[in-house]
């Protein structure tokens, strides 16, 4: 794979699959995302990324909707 650069989820294109690296958020939010399956190294596929508006991603075979602000805080490779 090589060293892919760390980038926010919000710039990932529709259809692309990436790996979660870290989440830049407070403990509460981070914990909630974690319990919903957004852990380091989990694979995320971006389903819908229409500007402006929220994101639809696929994680562990379920669809999740994120606000754009949140997508900025999730760093992926």
């Amino acid at each position: 794979m090589g060293d892919k650069q760390l980038r926010p989820l919000s710039v990932v294109k529709e259809g692309e699959t990436v790996k979660l690296a870290t989440i830049n958020a407070g403990q509460g939010l981070k914990s909630r995302l974690t319990t919903m399956g957004l852990l380091p190294n989990v694979e995320i596929t971006v389903i819908n990324n229409s500007h402006p508006g929220p994101f639809v991603i696929s994680v562990k075979n379920s669809r999740m909707m994120l606000g754009r602000g949140m997508a900025h805080k999730i760093m992926v490779t």
């Binding site: 909630r32 995302l33 669809r63 909707m65 994120l66 606000g67 602000g69 949140m70 997508a71």
Partner: peptide, 11 residues
């Protein structure tokens, strides 16, 4: 600031 949200989209 407006906080963003996470929500599951059920099939």
């Amino acid at each position: 600031e407006t906080t963003s949200f996470v929500m599951e989209l059920p099939p």
